[in-house]
Write a protein that binds this DNA or RNA. Structure first.
Length: 260
DNA sequence: ATGGCGGTGGAGCACCGA
């Protein structure tokens, strides 16, 4: 069972990249963020032609998340429970039925939170607290669970090129990292770190200032696993080559293999 | 490290992202 997550930065601009990735890497489940379109505008036909079921939670212009799966998607949840006043499409979850049992997967686009002296930062922290509360409930189910997406959190200093540059940024502020850690402390495993202890394992490089050729990256895209999923973890990989394509997203996919 | 990119909407350029 291969599960990938990718902030695609507009699915319509990136359709060729996406189709190539689905063909070459063949994830069973693909979690997308920043599709930047309404549900009706999602290139559903093209993706279904590759053998995927498609569930979207889109909105006009900004945000938007989706789940693609070779297995049927059931019990689809759009939006975080207890966050009904949130007009931003940042969360979609579903149960994937396989012959070896059920697996629950969510595609998450956590708010950026900048600038930190505006209401965007408290919105980010509040959103993280809603996510933690929901994760706590899901963990009670004691089933394989993968919470994958763009968390907009740099967990540790070694997850960015220069911690001094990010010191006052919403992605790296102590409160951001502590709130993320409190999510992990529920018993979730950061899949990449469970498999790879190397530094400079980045998932995002800014379009500006030659960040990619200079390897000025950050690691903000994560797959968090319940104990029942972590027990099945075989490997985790960052598809860094995707940043070198024509018209790339500024994020690259991250993927795991589970023995499921 | 930030002028320097790139997406959206709409037909200029503001807004957003990280």
């Amino acid at each position: 069972m291969r599960i990938a997550t990718w902030n695609i930065n507009s699915v319509r601009q990136r359709l060729d990249c996406l189709i190539g990735y689905l063909r070459d890497t063949a994830p069973d489940i693909m979690c997308l963020q920043e599709i930047k379109c309404v549900d009706e505008a999602f290139p559903r036909i093209e993706i279904e032609a590759l053998g995927y079921n498609v569930e979207t939670h889109g909105q006009k212009t900004f945000n938007g998340v989706a789940l693609l799966s070779k297995f049927p998607l059931e019990d689809v949840r759009r939006g975080l429970p207890g966050n009904d006043e949130d007009g931003q499409a940042r969360y979609i979850e579903a149960v994937v039925s396989t012959k070896n049992g059920a697996l629950r997967v969510a595609s998450i686009y956590l708010p950026n939170g900048n600038p930190v002296d505006t209401d965007k930062y408290p919105y980010k922290i509040s959103w993280m607290e809603h996510l933690r509360a929901h994760a706590q409930n899901l963990l009670c189910l004691e089933e394989p669970l993968v919470l994958a997406g763009d968390y907009n959190v740099i967990p540790q200093a070694r997850d960015c090129y220069d911690p001094n540059v990010w010191a006052n940024d919403a992605l790296f502020l102590p409160q951001t990292r502590l709130t993320f850690q409190s999510l992990l402390n529920l018993g979730l495993t950061d899949a990449l770190r469970a498999c790879n202890d190397e530094d400079k394992t980045y998932t995002f490089w800014d379009y500006q200032a030659g960040a990619w050729p200079k390897n000025w990256g950050i690691r903000i895209d994560h797959l968090l696993l319940s104990p029942q999923a972590a027990d099945k973890l075989q490997n985790a990989h960052i598809d860094k080559n995707m940043r070198a394509l024509e018209k790339p997203s500024d994020h690259v996919p991250v993927r795991i293999d589970l023995s499921l």
